[in-house]
Design a protein around this nucleic acid. Structure first.
Lengths: 191, 191
DNA sequence: ACGTTTGCCTAAACCCTTTAGGCAAAGGAA
DNA sequence: TTCCTTTGCCTAAAGGGTTTAGGCAAACGT
C-alpha cells in the first residue's frame, strides 16, 4: 500500500547515495539507508541496481566524473606550477567537501568498469599539467604516477587525521609539497 | 556441547584475523568468519573483544607494529638514499605480502587508540631516515608528511590496480620516484 | 575435594542483502 | 474513453552478520 511512485532511477539512487555518503560515511551507505531516504521498501531498489556493489560503483563513478569536471575547469588557462597546484587542490578540496564521494572514488573497479568511468579523463588532466614541463613519454608515465601518489596519499592521510597531532597545520605542508613537486618536475630530465 | 576449549584470547583473535584479512580481504573479516575459523560460536568472541570495531583496531595495531618492526630492522646501518629506499620498500613489500593487514593499518584510530599503536614508532622511523638529510625541525615535519604521502599513495594506488593498465611496470616508477624524492630532500633547504 | 573464576554455550533480537512473485499505476493504441 | 502492456513498487521469505543476556561446565587456586 503506497501513495505515489518515488521515481527511482539508477542515477537518482547514485546521486542520493553520494549525498548520503558525504553525510554519514561511504561505508554506511546501505540499500536499507537509501530505501529509508526515498521512503520505499528495500527490495524496490533492486529493480534499478543489480546489488549494493553496483550501487557503490555508480557512486564512485559519479565522484570520478565530478572530479574530472572540476579538474577541467580548474586547469583552463593555467600551466606550470599554477596548473599543478590547481589539480592538487581539485583532489584536496573535493575530498574535504565530499569525503564520502572521495572514498567512493577509491573503490577497486574491474577493468571494464574502469574504462567507463571518468578515471581516464582524470589521468588526461594530469597529463595536461605535465605538458607544462619538459618530459619524454616514459618519464611522463612516471610523473603521472608520482602526482597521483602524492595527491591521493596526502589527501588520504590528511582525511584520516594523520596530520592532526603535529604542528604546523597540514596546509603549510601542502604548499611546501606542491613547491617541491614543481621543482622535481622542472629538473626531472636532469636525472 | 563442545569438546575442548579453543583457547581464545584478544591477541589470538587479532592474529587469526590478520591472517584471514590477507586471505580473504580485510573488509570480509567478520566475527562470524573468525568464529568459524576457531570452531566456536560467534557470541564466544565477545568475551574477548568488545565488538567488531575493537577487533579491527586490534588487527590494525598488529599490522602497524609489524611494519614498525620491519622498518627498524631495515633501517639499521643505512642512511641517505639507501635508508629512504629501505623505508619505502618496507611499506611496499608489507602491502604486497599482507594486503589485508595493510588495509587494517589504514583504519581511522581515535586519538587514544592512535597513541597506543606503533604509529608513532613508524613516524620515528621516518624521522630517522631524514637524519641523513639536512633539515630544520619544521621542514622535517613537512618531509615526514611528504614521505608518508608518497609511500602510502603509491602503495595504495598500486594495490588498487591503478598502474596495471599502462607501461612500464610500476617497479620502474617506484625507483624513479625514490630517486626524485632523494633529490628533493637533498636540496630541500635551497627553496 | 571445594568454591571461584573463566570460557564457551544457547537463545533471541535486530539489521542488512537478495530473490521471487504480485498488484496497481503509467503510458500507448484504438 | 477503454484495453493492454510495461513498469514501479509492494509483500514475503531466506540467509548472514552483530550484539546482549543468561547458563553450565571446565580450569584453577587453596
Amino acid at each position: 500500500m503506497y501513495v505515489a511512485r518515488a521515481g527511482l532511477t539508477p542515477d537518482r539512487l547514485a546521486q542520493a547515495g553520494a549525498e548520503l555518503a558525504d553525510e554519514i560515511g561511504f561505508e554506511k551507505v546501505t540499500a536499507s539507508a537509501l530505501a529509508r531516504h526515498f521512503g520505499v521498501q528495500v527490495a524496490s531498489l533492486y529493480s534499478h541496481v543489480r546489488n549494493t556493489h553496483d550501487l557503490k560503483v555508480r557512486i564512485g563513478t559519479l565522484a570520478l566524473a565530478e572530479m574530472a569536471g572540476n579538474a577541467a575547469t580548474a586547469l583552463a588557462g593555467r600551466s606550470g606550477r599554477d596548473a599543478l597546484a590547481a589539480l592538487g587542490n581539485v583532489y584536496r578540496d573535493y575530498a574535504r567537501a565530499h569525503p564520502g564521494r572521495y572514498a567512493a572514488a577509491q573503490i577497486r573497479f574491474t577493468p571494464e568498469e574502469a574504462a567507463t568511468t571518468a578515471g581516464p579523463r582524470l589521468s588526461e588532466m594530469t597529463r595536461a599539467v605535465l605538458r607544462g614541463y619538459d618530459l619524454n613519454d616514459e618519464d611522463q608515465v612516471h610523473a603521472v604516477r608520482l602526482l597521483g601518489s602524492i595527491f591521493h596519499g596526502f589527501v588520504s592521510l590528511e582525511q584520516g587525521g594523520s596530520f592532526d597531532h603535529s604542528t604546523p597545520a597540514s596546509e603549510q605542508s601542502w604548499i611546501r609539497i606542491l613547491d617541491s613537486l614543481d621543482a622535481t618536475l622542472r629538473t626531472w630530465p636532469c636525472q
